[in-house]
Design a protein around this nucleic acid. Sequence first.
DNA 1: GGGCGTGTTGCGTCGGCTGCAACAGTCGTT
DNA 2: AACGACTGTTGCAGCCGACGCAACACGCCC
Lengths: 250, 250
Amino acid sequence: MSQSVERALGILPLLAKGPAGLGDVADELGVHKSTALRLLRTLNEAGFAYRCPDGRYRLGARLFALAAEAIENLDVREVARPHLAGLNQATGHTVHLALHQDDEVVYVDKVDSRYPVRMYSRIGRPVPLTVAAVAKLLLADLPEAERRALAHRIEYPRYTARSTPDAEAFLRELDRVREQGWATDLGGHEESINCLGAPVRGPDGRVVAALSVSAPGVVLPAEGLLELLPQVLRTAGAISQDYSGVQETA
Amino acid sequence: MSQSVERALGILPLLAKGPAGLGDVADELGVHKSTALRLLRTLNEAGFAYRCPDGRYRLGARLFALAAEAIENLDVREVARPHLAGLNQATGHTVHLALHQDDEVVYVDKVDSRYPVRMYSRIGRPVPLTVAAVAKLLLADLPEAERRALAHRIEYPRYTARSTPDAEAFLRELDRVREQGWATDLGGHEESINCLGAPVRGPDGRVVAALSVSAPGVVLPAEGLLELLPQVLRTAGAISQDYSGVQETA
DNA sequence: GGGCGTGTTGCGTCGGCTGCAACAGTCGTT
DNA sequence: AACGACTGTTGCAGCCGACGCAACACGCCC
């Protein structure tokens, strides 16, 4: 739509991968060095790019500040926070909250496990769509047509032997999840990690977020995790209720 | 430098504050609606803006993904991680790692306290420059001229009665910090929170990052916190050594 | 129906962006 | 020291892409 903006935005992913010089950027964008320079300068002035002392460019602090600010302002998060903390307190395990946007599912909050052996994750990070419990929950609620389209659009990496292999299996899994009202990921992403998740619903009954409890098998075997189901469902329900009550605070 | 890019980037902070309609954006930017529409469309296609079902715009998932990816790739972080975890293990308190870019200092990693009463913070969030221990450490190492310029450029919010009041006091504090090789924030940001920090140095001796231990007064009084100084300095030293050894991994 | 308030589209005009080519640094090399 | 090869930088002219305008499509409420 808007050429220069498109190009400028295209630079950011390059910088995210690591520092890059002017030449690198120009090459990857397929534009003249002078053009790249001007774009980088604009990004720099706006604080989105940062000029290292050695002349190379990195992503700027502004970007982090924005991401942090936006995540703070996601209203569900606020409502959910105390409940997540409670669930963590009760179970001791890592608790996540995730949202869905476009073709991605992102963690927007987490409370770390009390145990030294923890699942690795980071707020703001995209979640593996085809295996994560929270992803299944959020995608299962999409309208039929969109769900099918998305299932065929995405890829199915074989993280482990238990990963969802293809679109057909994924759609079947989503149906099951929608029906039973909760989801699991038993070693589908990392062999030793199991997750159990439940949906948070908005006032209209649509799924607006999903939470999950994760624990490595060495700390808690899958059977033990499943025993937490009532607690997980109760927490998700409580958040849904809170959230439906105080909607439209903006 | 590049008008349309400048405008497009200007939109992002607006969206970060909360969802906004097309009209709002156009007004705040001071451009015609059609222009704003085109910019928003470009942002949307790139995944930086997200169109809510109700037509309003929010920040897109791409931005979060980028921020997360970039933070992962900050090399100091990798090196520091195990040391931070160790310090947390040993003391039980919240440990932060921060970097300096432009006029901001940002947390790039943290390990949460084991105690239920914790300091509030978030990775990616800008740190209050004038009071935080990590900020003092990073800024104290700037060349004289830059340090003075920055000290007079920034603002001095009175978070508490113990906040740094003005540029003169701040510069004096920085001198002290540089000389003694560590820094504190005793209730300068929030009355009840104390921090103790030390610098991480690169191969050339310049400060490249700073770490700090934070604890609320109710858990650990200031005197107790200061007793951790040897441990904090040792950790910072260890990271410095590791980092200087394996530099230029990129 | 008429009045608004949205978001959207087509179009001409002008200006900002682009690519070029020439310049200015800074390394290594001989 | 002079050289080339490399980086990032600047001025300029031409052209295309972005801009604002005006007109259009909706939805909503009085």
